[in-house]
Structures are given as structure tokens and as C-alpha cells.
Amino acid sequence: MSASNRFITVEGVEKSFGSTQALAGVDLEVEQGTVLGLLGRNGAGKTTLVRILATLLAPDKGSVGIAGLDVVRRARMVRSLIGFAGQFAAVDETLTGRENLELVGRLYGLSRFLAHHRADEVLQRLSLTQAADRRVGTYSGGMRRRLDLGASLVGRPEVLIMDEPTTGLDPRTRIELWAFIDELVREGTTLLLTTQYLEEADRLADSIAVIERGRVIAAGSPDQLKQRFGGDVVEVRATNPTDVERLVTLLNGLGSGPPMADLRGQRVTLPTGERVHTLLAAARRIEEAGISVDDLGVRRPSLDDVFLSLTQQTTPQRPTITPAAATA
């Protein structure tokens, strides 16, 4: 990555709220015209970082730059470059869709005429023209989310910052929103979005930063992250959920890392560098132990596997099953 391409830079950012450290030294870079997905669980620090980028919070330590401008010292300039869509659809229910957009346009400093024009443009783009003069209170959840995204586009931002843009959306609306985000990126918008969904990060992001307990614990392209996981995954699905813990104990030591349990899916996954050997060894052990399984196979790792293995390493006290806990 050449220096001139670093459009968003985050260096050593720390932020605490009272005694709670939300960010414990975050470094990130985003190239112009690319999408960075910030991936993490609830409470990992995603929203805090996004709020700092959107000039809503000042970091305790470290610096954040957008287009070479410091977000604290040049906050006003930064604000006219960014569009921010927070976690909630921040639109007024008692105003119409058009009124909401015109309001934002006026606050970007546009004339009444231009604000009206931009509102039209955005409404058309987001297929909200029909509903433009209806109060937002009558909109569906998906329409509100679209309008909220539209509000962040009124100022034609070069950088779009979105905090969990598709949380709570139905699958169809989510796919529509993804397609729309693709379109914006094609036009040159630089995008930073947070998500809890690996599928979303995989689908949208050019690079992913996994954030956990206020730190970036892994970063790279989706493929790089998957490769980092190393090789393939042997996956076993137990017939009986009570056997999941036994399977974890049974398979320990066969793969290139510890087996991981997914209690809800009744699955146990095992990373491996030698797919056939591990699969056969696992099959033998399962048969000898007489555990009934519905499925047994080898597949390429998904981002879920990467995420689970990464977050498990950093939080050993997490209440998922580790081999030690299972034998105890």
C-alpha cells in the first residue's frame, strides 16, 4: 500500500469510559475507494472507534486522520467529507422522507434549492420517490434504514462510515443494501463499516479487521484471514447435542489446533493441515467411541472458523467448550 493511498489512518487509538477501556491501542489503514469491515462482537469496541472516526468522540490517545485531516483538530473539515449512518435509523418519524433529507442537506450548508435537488436525487436512487412525501412513521423498517443511509449520502461524502448497517434487516433488504453499497464503492466512495456478520464482511469488505476487547487481533483480506487459519476444517455434526462435549475431548490433538464446539449447531470443527489423514483418524475415533453422528466431512474454512478461533484464543474464559473444560 503506497503512502498516498492511505485515506483513513488510525494510529495507536485508546479510549476509556471511566475504568472501562473500550479501545486499547488500535491501528488501521484504509485505502481510498476500498471497503474496510470492522468485525467484532457486541462490546468489542467497534462503535467507539466508529464514533471517533465520525468526530463524535475524541480519542484519549493516538490519532485518526481522514484524507490527511486530523479528526480532532480539523473536525469541521472532516465532517464535510464524511457521511455517517449510526446504529439506529436516525430519522424523524413525524417528518416526511423528503423533509428528513432536505434537513440534512441544509445542515451540510446547501441552499434550499440545492438541498431540495439532492433530496430528489437520493430518493430516486434509493427507490423512495413514491414514499417521499409520506411521513416516515408509515415506512417499513427497511425503508427507514434506506432513508437513513440516504441521509448520509446527501452531502455526497467521500467517506461513508456505517455502524452495523444491516442489523435487524430482513434478508432481502440486506441483499439490496449490499448491492447499493457495491454501487457506491464503484463510484469511488471509501467505506468503513462495522458488522457482527462474517458473511457481510466477506461479501462487502476488501479488507477486514477483527476487533476484540479494544484491539485489532487480525487484519487482512478475507482470503488472507482464511489462509491464516491454516488449511482445512474437519467438521462433525453430532446426532445428539449431549455428545458435543465428548466429541471435543475425543478429537483433541488430531488437528493442527484445538477442536471448537458450536453447541447450537451441534457441530465440532477441527482445523487441519492434512485433510485426509485427520478425517480418517477422526472417523476411527468416533466409531470406536460409538458416538452417533449425522455428518462428517472436510471443507474449506469459513470466516466463522477464523473468527471463532481468533476470539477463542484471546478470551480463554469464554463459556464455549475447550478441551480442558470438557474433561473436567
Binding site: 439506529f88 436516525a90 430519522v91 445542515l107 451540510y108
Partner: peptide
């Protein structure tokens, strides 16, 4: 609580 204030504060207002 609705995030409206965040939106206003993120604008060059």
C-alpha cells in the same frame, strides 16, 4: 437515544 443528535453532530453544523 434515537441517534438523531449523533447525526446532527456528524454534519458540518
Amino acid at each position: 437515544s434515537k441517534g438523531v443528535t449523533d447525526r446532527f453532530r456528524s454534519l458540518p453544523t
